[in-house]
């Protein structure tokens, strides 16, 4: 049979690794990526960098301002802040990324089930989520961390579980919107099973806001880890984390402002970095954006 009037597609053909090309074109996301890469490399390379021992105290160098010997100054026990910052990046970045990964890994599937199936599944998941959301984020994290016992790993689990309900809620809301799209109905009508529909049709289309929420939560998690460390529930002294450094520093704000400044700037930069990266990812992953 002769084909019908041929027509050319309206857009240019897709190029290879278009997502990456779009990321490259987005200056903000590249800046974010550079910031995160910078801290990540420092954290990974900490053991081989020629820096002072982060837990070695020195009674002759208490609260010294930045100098040639101590580039970023020293803290109240005479420890080198540069060294502690670099070692602390490990704990802080880990706490941020791992706890968010836990929150996403648990929250998103529950949100997906809840939104997709509705009915009593939805009722049960939503009531539990509401109960968790009713408790303040940090209080939940503290209670869980105290229950699990003090260590960085347990702090990450505690933070992840406390951040999870937000992802359940967010995912469910997105699923409810996407579920009514014709293409989901179309998937049912070609005979796909629930797992296929959820993973191939719904999940990819709800992921953009989840990624953005995740990058924002990384920032919250880094700060939460700091709070837990302060209570002795996170990174155990004398091992450094930015949060615990900041908490110590607040007692010396007027005498040694650099103690608070460096971890403060680092947290700020990492948070900005993750936000910029998140925005860029959201645009790059959307095939509709040219």
């Amino acid at each position: 049979m002769t084909a019908i009037e041929q027509t050319a597609p309206i857009a240019k053909p897709r190029q290879k690794s278009r997502g990456w090309r779009k990321m490259r074109a987005n200056r903000g996301s590249m800046v974010g990526m550079v910031i995160i890469a910078f801290f990540a490399i420092l954290a990974i390379a900490a053991p081989i960098l020629p820096i002072a021992d982060p837990i070695a105290t020195s009674w002759s160098a208490l609260r010294k301002a930045p100098s040639a010997a101590h580039w970023l100054g020293t803290d109240d026990l005479g420890r080198d802040i540069l060294s502690r910052m670099i070692w602390g990046a490990r704990a802080s970045l880990m706490a941020g990324v791992v706890s968010v990964a836990i929150a996403v890994a648990i929250g998103v599937p529950f949100g997906l089930l809840s939104g997709y199936f509705g009915g009593w599944v939805d009722q049960v998941i939503q009531r539990v989520t509401e109960a968790l959301l009713a408790m303040p984020f940090l209080i939940t994290a503290i209670a869980l961390a105290a229950f699990l016992g003090p260590s960085l790993t347990n702090a990450m689990i505690a933070i992840g579980l406390s951040a999870m309900p937000v992802f359940v809620r967010l995912t469910r809301g997105q699923v409810l919107a996407v579920k009514t799209e014709d293409y989901v109905e179309g998937a049912r009508s070609i005979g796909l099973n629930h797992v296929d529909i959820m993973t191939r049709y719904i999940l990819p289309n709800v992921f953009a806001p989840i990624i953005v929420q995740a990058t924002l939560t990384v920032a919250t998690a880094i700060i939460a880890e700091a709070s837990l460390s302060f209570l002795g529930l996170g990174q155990q002294a004398p091992a450094p984390s930015w949060g615990s450094m900041l908490n110590t520093a607040k007692n010396f704000l007027s005498q040694a402002p650099w103690m608070a400044m460096w971890p403060g700037i680092a947290i700020f930069l990492v948070v900005i970095g993750f936000n910029l990266l998140g925005d860029g990812l959201r645009d790059a992953l959307d095939p509709r954006e040219a």
């Binding site: 014709d182 293409y183 998937a187 005979g191 099973n193 990819p204």
Partner: peptide, 24 residues
């Protein structure tokens, strides 16, 4: 058998902008 039945009957929707998965 419902899944098998789908081989015999198929549907075309109204709005071609929402009936295809944008990520596929």
């Amino acid at each position: 058998s419902l899944r098998n039945m789908r081989k015999s009957v198929q549907m075309i929707f109204q709005d071609p902008f929402s009936s295809l998965n944008p990520r596929m």
